[in-house]
Structure formats: structure tokens, C-alpha cells
Design a protein around this nucleic acid. Structure first.
Length: 425
RNA sequence: GCGGGGUUCUCCUAGCCUGGUAGGGAGCAGGCCUGCUAAGUCUGUGGUCCGUAGGGCCACGCGGGUUCGAAUCCCGCACCCCGCGCCA
């Protein structure tokens, strides 16, 4: 959420930023918001004047009664005020609701280093790390490899839960755990606290962490309860400090969250949906930081380094892209994606590193104070970065480490975590 | 799931039965005092709106209702504690 005061006082800053996003309807929303906000304030002043009037009369009534005098005249006079207030208040609430809706849809202000572009084709490649493996045979996809090894079963999962689910079996399931352990160990050694969060959340905190589009397209709702299955552990971690004021000396708070993630993936038609790439449920290790506003750009690079060190440790070929203005979404001020190389020669997204600056914190109302006992000083900054999404990492491992005979070599760093197993075969 | 208790401003707490300006303490910030520190003392402390000064409104878990007036009475919901039940 943007600072409404900034919008009032310097709408030109927001306008200039919105123009970069290639979404003219957002500019229209801004203009509408400015108009509605003004109406809201006018109505609010009127409503407050009425409430003030009521207060004066009721105080008079109270005083008269205290003195044992008759207050019938004053009570009669006050009798028609409540309905006037009610009418005005409902107007105020209406304007406020409309303004909030628009405010929640307006995106974060972009960092200057975000490249201009229309969609994901305009993302800028920052660097390419490692080399693609050389095969003297026709490489298989991870679906073929894992199916042939008897370690994955999409058919039975479809029977039981529908498309987009899978059974991981045997050593491939062990590999999933090894990837998680490897990731958690590395991040713990760098000062991140391991968190197992709730896997369901109420609607209100959910609206704070992400944008409304998520509700239709991604989130599973629990019937008859105000609960949604989480799409990533970022969400419960971010929401954990909702409506709180954090003491500055406790910052930064660094978490490594581990959880299954649930996504409906509505509207994924035409996207790459093969095998494990786009599924309704997968395990993911997520990095999350609450920090002082001055430190977020430093930590954005730290998070990036952590992720890249993880991929380098696994010996995987990947590239980093700086996500462009048209593809970045509304929450982040800047975003790096890591894309891993797959056996069909394509790089596909495996993780995403966002500095949300104060945008998410403002939505969630997470502030900090300089010293105990002092008033809140400002909003914290939040950052989140995939450490490793196991399903997509498994794809990369299977496809990049495959052998001519259909077996798969286990990356050196994972082998000790699987009883020194060297191959899936 | 059932029954009881609870949620008050940054923190702790009074007020609720019996409706009438939300009181006290701590912390923090500032002023006074002081050679300095401490003590003492005074003022301030959240959100929001109008604005030059200054003032208004809101905030007692959340949302409704009753009333001239609600922290207080009524209804619904969330969360916490205690007990009972069910359960891996």
C-alpha cells in the first residue's frame, strides 16, 4: 500500500512511476483515488462537526441531570442528530471503502534500477552462472526420467486428487527432504531462524501480504471457515507481525520458512505445465526479512547471494534476471528471478527475490520504534526470497544430472544427507 | 464441540454490576531544578482530519444493535486462559 499522504501531496511522483508499468488503467485508478479521497475528507469533516454538536448536547444533558434539573428540551433537540450522523457516516464509510480498494490495487513505487519493459520478454539477464551439461545422448525430461525410475506417479495422484498432484516415491522423495535439509542448514549457518508457519490463514492478514488477484487465481479456500491454504510460507511469516511495533534493536529479523505451498494456478493455460513445474502443491524453503528501512537494499543483495550460493553448491546451471517494470507485480519495488536450465534448453523460473520496501508493511501495519516506550517511528521494510522450491529444484537436478542409462547422479552436497547415496537408479 | 474467565492508549492496571469528560502507575520524550548524575517536579505520549496558530473527530479485541449519550447494556465473530468432552 502506498502512503496516501504522498499521493495527496505529490501525485506527480506516483504518476511518473505508474507510467513505467504499461498499465494505463492504473493511472485512471490513481485519478479516481485522488477524487474519492477528497470527497471522503469533505464528508469526514461534516460528520465530525455533527458528532461534535452531539457531544456538546449530551454533555449538557449529563450536567443538567447531575444537578437534578430537567433535560427534556435538550433530549428532544438531540433526537434527530443520530440519524443524520448515521447517514453521513455510511457515506464516509462508502468513500473510505472505495478509496481503500483503489489504494490496495495501486502498486509499489519501483526502484530506479528496474528495467523498463512490457512483459517477461523484456526482463534483463544480469548474469549466467555455470554451464549446461553436455549430453552425448538425447536428454529426457524429468517426467520421463522419474517415471522410468519408478519414483514419481502422476496417474494415481490424478485419480486421487486430480491434475497437478503427484506421488514422490523412494529415493526421489528422500532427495526432496535432502534438498530441504541442505537449504535449511546453509541458511541457519547464516543467522536465519527456522520457522514452520501455520499452513492456513484468515482473509484479513492474507489481504495484507498479497494482492487481490491471488484470491481468485491461487488460493484454496477452506469451506465454511475463514481460512485459506497458504501459497508460500512468505505469507504467514510476513503476517506474523501484523499490527505490531517492533523494537529497532530487534531488527533485522531473519527467517527461513519451510512449508508446503498450495496454488490453484487458475489461468495457467498455455503456460509450461509439464510434470513438476506447475503443480498445486510443492515444498518450498523461503527466506524472509523484516528490517530497518535503511538496510533493505543491502539485504536484498544478501538474499540474492544466499540463493545463488545454494544453486552453485548444487552445481546447477542458472541465470539471474532483473524483472522489468511490466512483469514485476504490485508488491515489490525490485525483483530478481533465478531461472534454472532445463533439458529442453530453456531457462525457467525457480525462485524470486523481492524487496517490498514499506509497501507490504504498510498493508500489514508493521512499524518499528527506536527505543522501548517511545512512539512508533515508521514502517519496517520486508523482503522475501525463495531459497529453494524443491519441486523445481528436483526438475533441475534430474534433468541436469541425468546419465545415458537413465540414472541420475546425486549432487555431492546432497549425498551425505541421503546416506551417501550417489545415484538415483 | 460445551461451560466459565478474559482482551482498556507503548507496557501494566482501575472503571463494567448501577450508562454521563477513560483514572492511576511504569517506560519513553521534553521543560524546570541541579556544578554533573540521580532524585524531585511539570508537560507530553496512538490513529486521523481541517489548519498559519490552533482545534476537531476516532480509538477500551472486531462488527452490529439499544439510547439524547455505550469501555459499561444486548446480539454476532475472532483470539487468549481454565475446566469438560472428542481425538493423532
Amino acid at each position: 500500500m502506498l502512503d496516501i499522504k504522498l499521493i495527496r501531496e505529490h501525485p506527480e511522483i506516483i504518476k511518473k512511476d505508474l507510467e513505467k508499468r504499461c498499465e494505463p488503467e492504473k493511472l485512471e485508478m490513481l485519478n479516481q483515488l485522488i477524487k474519492i479521497d477528497k470527497q471522503w475528507r469533505q464528508n469526514l469533516v461534516e460528520a465530525n462537526e455533527l458528532r461534535h454538536k452531539r457531544k456538546l448536547i449530551t454533555t449538557e444533558v449529563a450536567n443538567l441531570k447531575k444537578q437534578g434539573k430537567d433535560a427534556t428540551k435538550q433530549i428532544e433537540e438531540a433526537k434527530n442528530i443520530p440519524q443524520q450522523i448515521k447517514r453521513l457516516e455510511s457515506e464516509v464509510a462508502e468513500f473510505r471503502e472505495k478509496a481503500d480498494q483503489l489504494l490496495m490495487k495501486l502498486p509499489n513505487i519501483l526502484h530506479e534500477s528496474v528495467p523498463f519493459g512490457k512483459d517477461e520478454h523484456d526482463n534483463v539477464i544480469e548474469r549466467l552462472v555455470g554451464k549446461p551439461p553436455k549430453f552425448d545422448f538425447t536428454p529426457k525430461s524429468h517426467v520421463e526420467l522419474a517415471s522410468d525410475l519408478g519414483m514419481i506417479d502422476f496417474e494415481r495422484a490424478a485419480k486421487v486428487a486430480g491434475h497437478g498432484f503427484y506421488y514422490l516415491k523412494g529415493d526421489l522423495a528422500r532427495l526432496d527432504y535432502a534438498v530441504m535439509t541442505y537449504t535449511i542448514d546453509l541458511l541457519r549457518s547464516r543467522g536465519y531462524t527456522l520457522v514452520e508457519p501455520p499452513l492456513m490463514m484468515h482473509r484479513k492478514p492474507y489481504l495484507g501480504v498479497t494482492d487481490l488477484e491471488f484470491f481468485g487465481d491461487q488460493l484454496y479456500k477452506i469451506e465454511n471457515d475463514d481460512l485459506y491454504l497458504i501459497a508460500t510460507s512468505e505469507h504467514p511469516m510476513a503476517a506474523s507481525y501484523m499490527d505490531e511495533v517492533i523494537l529497532q534493536k530487534e531488527l533485522p529479523i531473519k527467517y527461513v520458512g519451510v512449508s508446503p505451498c498450495f496454488r490453484k494456478e487458475v489461468g495457467a493455460h498455455g503456460k509450461y505445465t509439464k510434470g513438476l513445474f506447475r503443480v498445486h502443491q510443492f515444498n518450498k524453503i523461503e527466506q524472509f526479512i523484516f528490517c530497518h528501512p535503511d538496510d533493505s537494499w543491502k539485504f536484498h543483495e544478501e538474499l540474492q547471494k544466499n540463493s545463488e550460493d545454494l544453486y552453485k553448491g548444487l552445481g546447477l546451471h542458472y541465470r539471474v534476471v532483473n524483472v522489468c517494470t511490466g512483469d514485476i507485480g504490485i508488491i515489490a519495488a525490485k525483483k530478481y528471478d533465478i531461472e534454472v536450465w532445463m533439458a529442453d534448453g530453456t531457462f525457467r523460473e525457480a525462485g524470486s527475490n523481492s524487496n517490498c520496501t514499506d509497501y507490504q508493511a504498510r498493508r500489514l501495519n508493521i512499524k518499528y520504534r527506536k527505543k522501548a516506550g517511545q512512539s512508533p517511528f515508521g514502517f519496517v521494510h520486508t523482503l522475501n526470497n525463495t531459497a529453494l522450491a524443491t519441486s523445481r529444484t528436483l526438475i533441475a537436478i534430474l534433468e541436469q544430472y541425468q546419465q545415458k542409462d537413465g540414472s541420475v547422479v546425486i549432487p555431492e552436497v546432497l549425498s551425505p544427507l541421503m546416506g551417501n547415496l550417489e545415484r538415483l537408479e
